[in-house]
Computed example of a mutant assay.
Amino acid sequence: MEGSSETGADLSRAYFGQVVRPLLAAHDAGLEVAAARLGSGSDVLGFDDAQSRDHDWGLRLTVLVEDDRAPEIDALLESELPETWQGFLTRFATTWDPVVRQRVEVASAAGFAASRLGMDPSRGLTLPDWLSLTGQSVLEVTAGPVFHDGPGVLTRIREGLAWYPDDVWRYALAADWSRLGQEFPDVGRAGLRGDEDGSAVIAARHVRTMLHLAHLLHRRWPPYGKWLARSAARLPGGGALRIALHEVLRARDWRSRQAALADAAELLAMIQGEQGLPTMEPATEPFFERPHIGVREMAELLTAQIRDPEVRALPVGVGPAEQISDNVSVLVDPALRRRLVGS
């Protein structure tokens, strides 16, 4: 299969259907399982290519069983799987585990979800739970293809993680608009002082925030940084936003840079209105008497619609964990994420 265009998800589906499922049925014909390609890996998001195959790619699968049978099934697979299948090793080391072993991850549905999220979503999520989630952690449970779900538990968990509650959604949207507003005029101010490098750095920060905001507006969980722009390009209207943000990053002077940023902000404000949310037209305005551009009260419009008193009591403009910090070591650790949101 060297040189094959088959994706990791295709490979996992075939591996389950042709190897793992028959082996499980031979062991226990009545065994109910869910099977999917979940967890880490570009193939979970559908972004894998030939380069993806140099590590952590191959015969990976998630099998979910209930009634505390995960250790039994894991041991069965380790013992009974063939050494290779279709030219791929069934046992290999990974970047997080140097042990050479089979890579069908076996757990209960709730246990698997908790390993990614830091809590068991089948019990219902509290406000601190929602705030501690990252888009990537949710995608590791919800984005990958499901090949079979006999017990139905995985499907229910994925449905419960479809999106934030409405007021938490508005709070997160307002946090991104607030972040834009805080430094939007600084793109021009740094440039006016002759600091084009500083202007470009600030603008690049805004581009990342806008990509995150675009996902929120479309109720799509944003992936981590490597795939954020590519994922945004798949959103409705993502092509126009991509062009505007390219202009920001390509700009060689602060005036064209801030003009492109303003165009992107107007696109996002238009999308916000199309989603049935309050918006402003225009969403940007001159910044006092200076030749700079600021963001109007977009955040305030959203927070005014929040009715849940617990959400209304949250600090304005702060947002969930991934809006507070972009430190990877923090965002991949559920305990540290909870500390960020004060729980």
Results as ranks from 00 to 15, higher is better:
W254K: 03
D195Y: 15
P82L: 09
L302K: 03
L261T: 03
E285V: 07
R338S: 06
I243R: 15
G319P: 03
R189Q: 04
D74A: 15
A260I: 07
V248K: 11
S79D: 15
T7M: 03
G198E: 11
V328P: 07
E32D: 07
E159M: 06
I293G: 01
S199K: 06
G237H: 10
R208F: 11
S5C: 04
A229P: 07
A229C: 00
G17Y: 07
A109S: 15
G191Q: 13
R250I: 00
W85E: 05
P222C: 13
R312I: 05
E322R: 01
Q102N: 13
W96D: 15
D48E: 00
M119H: 15
R156S: 06
L59G: 02
L268N: 02
R230I: 07
G87N: 14
D54E: 14
L211D: 12
R101V: 00
S52N: 08
R205G: 10
H292D: 15
T95N: 04
I324H: 04
F92G: 04
E83P: 01
S199Y: 05
R220D: 13
F112R: 05
H292N: 14
A233E: 11
M210W: 04
D49G: 15
E159K: 13
V332Y: 03
P315F: 08
V138D: 13
T284N: 08
G294N: 03
V332K: 14
L331D: 08
V248I: 09
S325V: 03
A214I: 03
V187P: 02
S12L: 00
H215N: 13
D333H: 08
Q275T: 07
S5T: 08
A34C: 06
G191C: 09
L139W: 00
